[in-house]
Write a protein that binds this DNA or RNA. Sequence first.
DNA 1: TCGATACTGAACTGATCACTTGACTATTGG
DNA 2: CCAATAGTCAAGTGATCAGTTCAGTATCGA
Lengths: 127, 127
Amino acid sequence: MVNQLADLDRVFQALADPGRRLMIDRLSQGSASVSELGKPLAMSLAAVLQHVQVLEASGLVRSAKIGRTRTCSINPAALRSAESWISERRSLWERRLDRLGDYLADAADSPPRGLPGNHGQIPEEKQ
Amino acid sequence: MVNQLADLDRVFQALADPGRRLMIDRLSQGSASVSELGKPLAMSLAAVLQHVQVLEASGLVRSAKIGRTRTCSINPAALRSAESWISERRSLWERRLDRLGDYLADAADSPPRGLPGNHGQIPEEKQ
DNA sequence: TCGATACTGAACTGATCACTTGACTATTGG
DNA sequence: CCAATAGTCAAGTGATCAGTTCAGTATCGA
């Protein structure tokens, strides 16, 4: 809870790799060892470990070593923080769209005054 | 909807940068021009444009040029796809934790047989 | 005990990233 | 018309990333 901003950096960065997402996918249905996580991945074990370390640094995954095997599991709190960040922005935008829709539905008779804070039409075409 | 996998790569990669998240943040409360998005960012306009292009390539943002200004807006569908990916894995894990909790609550009297598919204890300590 | 297993650390390499600068185009407004 | 504004393109640079190989260490199991 120290640096929420840089934490999100690491979380999204961690999620940006398909191999690491596959690991999360695997872990979402139960804890697993490092080599188990690497099994579907066509890369050296050392590389797998580096991915696990990225996931762990982001807080998405926790791990503990028992004997010679390291067992990894998901930390749902980190997933939730990323999820919330997205969700908040999306719902903000969608609520705004709703209000705009209401406004336009009403606007057929009222005189044009300009909607404060609304610079935007929704663009359709490119270039 | 062509390549969901590589799309998520780009979406999470785009969200991994604090400047780009600030842009999304700004856009969540209404469309904005490229220079408007760059105003809080202490970098050249050319750099801002590159960020916008990353956001656009990921599908998170759409834009259209009118006159000499390019107006950007959020595409909520892309946000939702990232949100869903996370949400699905997290709830899978959490439902699994619940079942495990139920099992442990019942287990005081029944003989130990092993829970199929459950390799994991929840690790606490490191190294 | 001893070979196989499971990981770990370090160094190195090619690719991608986040910028920069500088030159250029298109629009706008007085 | 013409200066200021808004964006665009291209090339280059230093930093980070994703992987490798190789040389360990610790543990397990027969």
